[in-house]
Nucleic acid binder design. Structure first.
Length: 327
RNA sequence: AGGGCAGUAGCUCCAAUUGGUAGAGCGGCUGAUUCCAAAUCAGCAUGUUGGGGGUUCGAGUCCUCCCUGCCCUGCCA
């Protein structure tokens, strides 16, 4: 039987890059046989948050977003990372078998330091906690984006170190990395990869006038509508393709390629994208409003998830404690 | 642990007379313009001056304690 594990950090509002890059695939997994765990990585978020109220809101908003976007609590176990204290216990056990060198080689850590961020010990040991997240539920499958491959490899390494020293305790999970060709490109407003750190994101649930303004900010050139253009070099169409049918996108592209009086300007294309996106997330937006109105229900779902997650994590922890001689 | 240096807006700052209403650049936001953007123009806001306490009519500025970061010298489970 397969056990999958997905996590997401509640460090901001979720954007469409998060959705098409990760969330959508995460949610699809719930329909496969086996168990599926989804955690909101609030311990991880604390490595960068100093604002308790904001963190609480982001955790809630992240839970609501997953549920609104289709996560079904009947099929999947959604919980807060910090509701499962066994994870931090396992993290300590893993830390004792993990060399400094492994962590010093972590890309994400080196990147943050290169950005000038003064790292806390928590940021440095982030991969250890993440390994504990992965190993605590005996997960067999971990879906991740390219940027997280190294972290999963490190989790596999740490499982190997511990098992090598103390016997078979942890299950080494497989990772599932989406194939490049199946990944839709999600450029940000400026054409770079959409990312919170670039400040070029579009919030999933944006609507109305704010949505119009943000879509209009998509960077274009100053060529007039009549001028024939190669649509494949316009990343505007990559964004459009996320929300519109292939045939519709092709129609627009053809008009742009031909140019002339019948050709749409960038403004028209943006108007179409805005409407398509608004429609695409319409149902989810409604569910989000309902969930926000019923905080208690969201809390109940998270608590129920935590109960199930703890049951599993405590089994794994006990196994580890016994193996290494602490019990 | 001891000694030294530093902390001002989201970011960067040798702005801030002897103690006298906290500034600039970048970024951000609003509007004009534009098919939409960009550029340009007009306008707006940046803030517990790391935190507490004290002196003073009045503290970014002086005193004190604490926090954080960097450097030096040590100590150690």
């Amino acid at each position: 039987m397969q056990t999958s594990l997905s996590g997401i950090q509640p460090s901001g509002l979720l954007h469409i890059g998060n959705y098409f890059g990760a969330i959508r695939q995460h949610i699809q997994l719930q329909d496969q046989a086996g168990e599926n765990f989804y955690f909101i990585a609030d311990y991880h978020a604390l490595t960068s948050s100093r604002d308790p109220e904001a963190l609480r809101n982001f955790v809630f908003e992240t839970a609501v977003s997953y549920l609104a976007l289709g996560l079904d609590p009947a099929k999947a176990c959604l919980f807060r990372q910090s509701d499962v204290p066994e994870v931090t216990e396992i993290a300590w056990l893993l830390a004792t078998v993990t060399g400094m060198g492994l962590l010093e080689r972590a890309h994400s850590f080196k990147d943050k330091v290169a950005q000038g961020i003064k790292p806390s010990v928590g940021l440095f040991t982030y991969p250890v906690l993440m390994a504990a997240d992965i190993l605590a539920y005996d997960s067999t499958l971990v879906p991740v984006g390219k940027d997280q491959i190294q972290h999963v490899e490190m989790a596999q390494d740490m499982a190997g170190y511990f098992n090598g020293a103390f016997g078979d305790v942890f299950i080494r999970p497989e990772m599932m990395v989406p194939k490049a060709e199946s990944m839709q490109k999600v450029p940000g407003l400026d054409g770079q990869k959409m990312s919170k750190s670039y400040g070029n994101t579009i919030w999933i649930f944006e609507t109305g006038k704010p949505l119009k303004k943000i879509i209009n900010k998509i960077v274009t050139d100053s060529r007039p509508p009549q001028e024939p253009k190669d649509p494949n070099e316009l990343f505007l169409f990559d964004i459009m393709a996320l929300f519109a049918d292939q045939s519709e996108v092709d129609e627009w592209k053809e008009k742009v390629r031909l140019g002339g009086d019948g050709a749409p300007g960038y403004g028209h294309l943006k108007g179409f994208i805005r409407d398509a996106m608004e429609e695409y997330f319409a149902a989810a937006r409604l569910r989000r409003y309902e969930l926000i109105a019923d905080r208690g229900e969201v809390e109940r779902i998270l608590k129920a998830g935590a109960l199930k997650a703890r049951a599993r994590a405590s089994e794994v922890r006990d196994r580890a404690l016994t193996a290494c001689g602490l019990r």
